[in-house]
């Protein structure tokens, strides 16, 4: 529907987008095939075609939700795409950010659409067969490329604060502890034990500051089904920090697709780390990585506890919040307890 037609009746989302793009590009734009798609739990995601005469562009709209799995800054997400798309990291091209958002009721941004691929659910088995190793090599090499980039000249530095190298860990731990304090509905002794352990045994300072994707894992990238990664998605938790944070999140057991022999369901752990080291030019300190692994299991636990809170407060109408609040909370409780027990047994 065109902007002109929209004026004749109640405005649908399709109408609103068409009117917005017509104003932005200063020519009539029709919106076709608008459909909400799953994914990116902190924003509503829609795909559509913008049609201008004979020209057709596939686009993605990311709009703030009324409530979400995690509260994130859409500007940082947008700037993360702006930072890495020109560097050759496979990402959609960011097109426009509207932080006022009045025209679509809530803040939003638009980006180009990448067709011909799919993102796997992290709760499926053998999700990448028969291309797991090939995808795994790209997955960990791309993460190393992100880690290698100097964040200072990148657009994301306009919005993301850079911590001191020796404060990356405490900045993150403080943040997620505050989230736990805010959203905990039932006392969680495993999470509390993890916080105390992490504070008693801090990691060394970050060897460099990097852009941390914040949710770099199986399920947050598109692949073409033939062994090629098409796009790294869901940068809504991006920040500047210790690059080991992303590596540790990517290899968390929750994302293993129930395969204890392959991290992210893709590659043996040692091979994944070696690829990351080669691509980033950095060296993994095992003790530091161990700290970030424990931290990330704690961070995951808090995300799911917050999801359970949002599910309850929102009247239970978002099943993704309910599922993650139920299933993932229990799994990360277990993963975290196993890690704490292993650390104590090693000390004994």
């Amino acid at each position: 529907m065109t902007a002109l037609a929209a004026a004749a009746g109640p405005a649908t989302l399709e109408d609103l987008i068409a009117a917005y793009l017509s104003g932005l590009w200063k020519k009539p734009v029709a919106v076709e095939n608008l459909a909400r798609i799953p994914g990116g739990a902190s924003r509503q995601t829609y795909r559509f075609d913008a049609v201008m005469g004979a020209e057709r562009r596939g686009l993605i709209l990311r709009r703030d939700p009324v409530d979400s799995l995690i509260d994130t800054d859409r500007r940082i997400e947008y700037l993360a795409y702006q930072s890495f798309h020109p560097l050759g990291v496979p990402t959609p091209e960011p097109l426009v950010l509207d932080e006022d958002g009045g025209v679509l009721e809530r803040p939003f941004f638009l980006m180009s659409r990448i067709d011909g691929g799919a993102a796997a659910s992290p709760f499926t088995v053998d999700a990448y067969a028969p291309h797991a190793a090939e995808i795994g090599r790209q997955f960990f090499s791309i993460l190393g490329t992100i880690a290698a980039a100097d964040p200072a000249p990148l657009p994301i530095s306009r919005a993301a604060r850079a911590p001191m190298a020796d404060a990356c860990w405490s900045t993150e731990l403080d943040h997620w502890e505050q989230e736990l304090d805010k959203d905990e509905l039932h006392p969680n002794p495993i999470g509390r034990a993890a916080i105390r352990r992490l504070r008693r045994h801090p990691p060394p300072p970050a060897q460099k500051l990097s852009v941390v994707h914040g949710d770099y894992r199986s399920g947050n990238f598109m692949h073409d089904g033939q062994g090629r990664i098409l796009a790294i998605l869901d940068w809504e938790m991006a920040h500047i920090g210790d690059p080991l944070e992303d590596l540790a999140w990517a290899i968390d057991p929750l994302w293993s697709h129930f395969d204890p022999t392959r991290v992210s369901g893709l590659l043996p752990r040692a091979e994944a780390i070696a690829l990351w080291e080669a691509s980033s030019g950095l060296t993994v300190d095992p003790a530091a990585l161990q700290w970030w692994e424990l931290f990330n299991s704690f961070k995951g636990l808090v995300i799911w506890i917050s999801a359970a809170r949002s599910f309850r407060d929102g009247g239970g109408v978002d099943p993704v919040l309910g599922f993650t609040g139920l299933y993932c909370t229990r799994r990360h409780d277990q993963i975290l307890a196993e890690k704490l027990e292993a650390l104590l047994e090693a000390a004994a």
Binding site: T124, V125, D126, P189, A193, Y327, A337, E341, A348
Partner: peptide
């Protein structure tokens, strides 16, 4: 060690399992 074992056993007991789901 005694306390952490109790916590781990409790987490094991509370775990919920999904059926094996193939990727689509």
């Amino acid at each position: 060690r005694r306390i952490v074992r109790l916590l781990r056993e409790g987490a094991d007991a509370r775990r919920l399992d999904l059926p094996p789901m193939p990727a689509r």
